[in-house]
Nucleic acid binder design. Structure first.
Lengths: 238, 238
DNA sequence: CGGTTGTTTGAACTGATTCAATCTGTGTGG
DNA sequence: CCACACAGATTGAATCAGTTCAAACAACCG
């Protein structure tokens, strides 16, 4: 089922409080966020959720599943610019958002209003420091993606995304398999290619003995070599 | 002269206090930063300034000129991941930096120690909110660069960079010319191409009547068409 | 079963790279 | 002032990685 698939891809449910505490937030402040009025929304994959160019006065938190932020160039070619795994969130910014949001897999998302969020920030300015750190981490990931798109060949790009995904979905070190949450089109939209080529890259990776595909699962046959091909070093994930 | 070139490309000098005030910081806090111990450093372009993989316990502020943050893939191919124009800065982050810093043009940079910076942040937690906004802006620029590298053809990528540079260096609306601060190799490192191709793209842009080159200066002959080719809409710059 | 969504494969094409050579402008030392 | 060195820009030819278009195939779901 789609929802099971989402859960396992994202490493299970990560409740708000647990995630904030885990990221180093003072439990007293965590409690404030837990009390903040919010809706729980089930988001279907690859369906419009939030469109670009609309005022974005909401705060999102991914309980389970996987969200993507996307933009498109003038000609409508789509580029996924960021992912939010379970336990991560999306902060608002002045003005209208230049990006849209879609789910990669069926996701459970907490949606709060900026007008409920802002007073908490105002009352506890030390919170901004916490969110500054999280934002810096995401910036660091964006930078790695830029290296990926700009300087690596198509095989390395896909391999790198798989490595990052395995890591970020909280796969245990012992785990050597992962439910691939992406369609090949989505991988293309992340790595700046066409789905046709992504398909060929997958076939290559398999032929080289780096991965094996079993239905939706990807088995990493040679993690060390995989990392090397992808030139993946997880430092940028902190 | 190189230093004049840097100044005009970056739209002149932007002193620390003025920049922070201009970005919306409380003048009382601005004063704290102005009192913070710091060195003034002249940085030569395309020379090592800060290497990747080293603990980065400093804060930088660009007084005049233009800095770049760069990373490289496994094979040593270089990608410039961000620019800092006059009036912008670079914050530290836990652990060792995964990126290096180099000047694009000769720059005057203020360098402060994190240990002098942190106490100010500690004493004035509302500061983090200010830096959060700045960091979000840079993240937004990274995302646009991702669209650029991932989805636009080589002509649009170069055109987009030129548009962004014109805008960010604070060129007046009336201004239709700009000193190009980049070498073609640097443009290649930003847009994920080779310098050879960048050269051909420049020739194309000129042949299409979008720009004219006069020495180091670029004259925008048809700004509207340039924006269209680049699919440049400056909203992401805020 | 039929509709939908995603994957796989082939053939032709093209934008960009690679490698190598040449040209140009600028700064330096004699 | 000239000779030289150096960095960057320009050009050509061969090659190749990735796209495009089109069609077939597979899985899933009501």
């Amino acid at each position: 089922m789609t929802s099971r698939r989402s859960r396992s891809a994202a490493g299970g449910s990560v409740p708000l409080g647990e995630a904030l505490n885990g990221a180093g937030l003072d439990p007293a402040l965590t409690a404030l966020f837990e009390k903040m009025p919010k809706r729980v929304v089930e988001v279907d994959p690859r369906r419009p959720f939030r469109e670009p160019g609309v005022a974005r006065n909401e705060v999102f938190f991914v309980n389970t599943g996987l969200l993507s932020k996307y933009k498109s160039d003038g000609a409508g070619r789509r580029q996924i610019i960021a992912l939010r795994f379970a336990g991560e969130g999306i902060l608002p910014r002045e003005g209208e958002a230049d990006y849209g949001i879609q789910a990669i897999v069926r996701s459970e998302v907490l949606v709060a209003q900026q007008r409920d969020f802002d007073p908490i920030m105002d009352a506890h300015p030390e919170l901004a420091r916490f969110f500054l750190r999280l934002t810096q981490r995401h910036a660091s990931i964006s930078h790695e993606w830029l290296v990926n798109c700009g300087r690596r060949d198509s095989t390395a790009r896909v391999a790198h995304l798989l490595c990052e995904t395995a890591q970020r979905s909280g796969l245990g070190q012992s785990q050597d398999r992962m439910v691939n949450p992406f369609t090949q089109q989505q991988i293309a939209d992340i790595t700046g290619q066409t789905s046709v080529n992504v398909n060929r890259v997958f076939a290559d990776l398999e032929r080289q003995g780096l991965i094996r595909r079993e239905g939706r699962e990807i088995v990493f046959e040679d993690w060390a070599e995989m990392r090397r091909v992808a030139s993946f070093s997880p430092a940028y994930l902190q």
